[in-house]
Computed example of a mutant assay.
Amino acid sequence: IGMGGMDAFRARYIDNGLLDFLLKEREQGRIRNLGFSYHGDVDVFDYLLANHDKYRWDFAQIQLNYLDWEHAKETNPRNTDASYLYGKLDSFGIKAVIMEPLLGGRLAKVPEHIVSRLKGRDPLRSVASWAFRFAGSHPGVLTVLSGMTCMEHLEDNLRTYCPLVPLTDDDNRFLYDTADLMMQHPAIPCNDCKYCMPCPWGIDIPGVLLHYNKMLNEDNIPQSRQDPKYSKARRAFLVGYNRAVEPVRQADHCIGCRICVQHCPQGIDIPAELARVDNYAEKLRRGSLPG
């Protein structure tokens, strides 16, 4: 719920009697736990909690991680800070299911200075484990969702949660400060969900956006020709771009049809971001960055 705002919510769940049907199914025991997954318009979230006496939600799924705790709106104006969402659920005693604890993997692939900061705090813990511990340490969290693509991810998650060592207040302050540092290097908020795909023009949208983020996180994006690392970083970006994304599927093929935008859960203005990456790549090719 939340995508399309209150009008879409009423049309999908209220006006057609669907939510009343679900409530009756729970009363009959055919649904054990009834909840919702929240994306988008916070007015819908607030409405559902304001009517908790009627609906008696058993759980709600929200996006929560240490970057989105206080910086969700800075990352994407349509998002809502996780501290607000979790705080509301906690005040009603509603269990929380956590999605995007790693922000689509972005909190496992942080800039090198953030890696050094986290490893300096605890050399034996992985970068990703800090995000998982943050999500799991909050009271009332029912489960934390994790997309794992290899055995190493599974093993790291098991080490993190078996048993879970909750974060201390000092640990939380450390992560809040870490998030502040990360916001000095804002990335495109793509979580690689691929809901924007397929592009009718064949563009590898996630591939383009994630390559830009990867180079940004590795401090390989020069901002000026006067940067002493300019030549090396220029080559790294352009060579890596062609390896990560076939030239026929790169950002310069976007015609701005905006079909992708309506499918993006993060509400990213994808054509604008593709244009941003394409303009940057073209400046690197021509060696025409300012400075």
Rank of each mutant, 00 (worst) to 15 (best):
G2I: 04
G5K: 05
M6I: 01
F9V: 02
I14R: 04
L23W: 02
L23H: 09
K24H: 14
K24S: 15
E27G: 12
E27L: 04
G29V: 07
I31S: 07
I31N: 06
N33V: 02
F36L: 08
Y38R: 12
Y38C: 13
V42N: 11
F45Y: 06
F45P: 00
A50M: 07
N51R: 13
D53S: 13
D53W: 01
R56Q: 15
R56S: 11
W57F: 06
F59N: 04
A60T: 08
Q61C: 06
Q63L: 06
L64F: 10
D68Y: 11
K73H: 05
K73L: 02
K73F: 01
P77L: 00
R78F: 09
N79V: 05
S83Q: 10
L85I: 07
L85C: 04
L85G: 05
G87H: 00
K88P: 02
S91F: 00
P101I: 01
R106M: 14
K109M: 15
V110L: 13
P111A: 10
V115A: 03
V115Q: 11
V115E: 14
K119N: 11
L124P: 00
S126K: 07
V127I: 13
A131E: 03
A131M: 05
G136H: 05
V141K: 01
V144Y: 03
L145T: 08
L145M: 13
T149I: 10
E155A: 14
L158N: 08
T160H: 07
C162M: 13
P166Y: 03
P166M: 10
L167I: 09
T168I: 10
D169L: 12
D170L: 02
D177E: 15
D177Q: 15
H185A: 11
P186G: 13
N191R: 13
C199L: 04
G202S: 07
I205V: 11
G207L: 08
R225I: 15
K229L: 14
Y230D: 03
S231L: 15
R235F: 09
L238E: 06
V239H: 13
V239S: 12
G240I: 04
Y241M: 15
Y241V: 00
Q250V: 09
A251Y: 02
D252G: 10
D252N: 12
H253D: 01
C254L: 01
C254Y: 01
G256Q: 09
G256T: 09
C257T: 06
V261C: 11
Q262I: 09
C264I: 05
Q266R: 05
Q266L: 12
D269L: 11
I270A: 00
I270G: 01
E273C: 09
R285Q: 10
R286F: 06
P290L: 12
P290F: 05
P290W: 03
G291I: 06
